[in-house]
Amino acid sequence: MAAQNIKPLRDVVIGKYDQLRTRERVVLDIDGKEVGVYFEGDEVRAWLNVCPHGGGPVCQGKIMPRTVHNFLPGGKSGGLGHHESERNIVCPWHGYEFGILSGEHPIKSDVKLIAVPVRISDGDVILSV
């Protein structure tokens, strides 16, 4: 994670979509710029590997199901559970969590990851870095 110079973005092919999507997540250092690329169903996202909390390597942590508090009728608590589909990126430094697809903290949505442009073209996964 070297200091980021301001220079024009350029496209970098990081691999074939069909192969990478089986990986769920890859974290790459591209000339000192670190990016986590996530494959979730048919969606792809790329986030800068720098946590908004303290600059930690957020994309190198675990991927965990989002934890939910089940509410029952009458205001009763149904206890904790794992969300059936949503999963979070967990920063390994202190545990901040972010939705894989939204990049947002589950409680405070304006605490979020920085998106890196990513697209699939002719079967290639291309990052603009």
């Binding site: 250092d29 591209i30 600059g55 190198q60 390994p92």
Partner: peptide, 28 residues
């Protein structure tokens, strides 16, 4: 570009890898 893959950080990661971003913060 030089592209290097970074591994997941866990209990058995080398401390210097876990804290790599902090080392960059030290320099900056």
């Amino acid at each position: 570009p030089e592209i290097k893959e970074l591994e997941q950080i866990g209990r058995r990661s080398d401390t210097r890898d876990v804290l790599n971003h902090a080392t960059h913060q030290a320099i900056a």
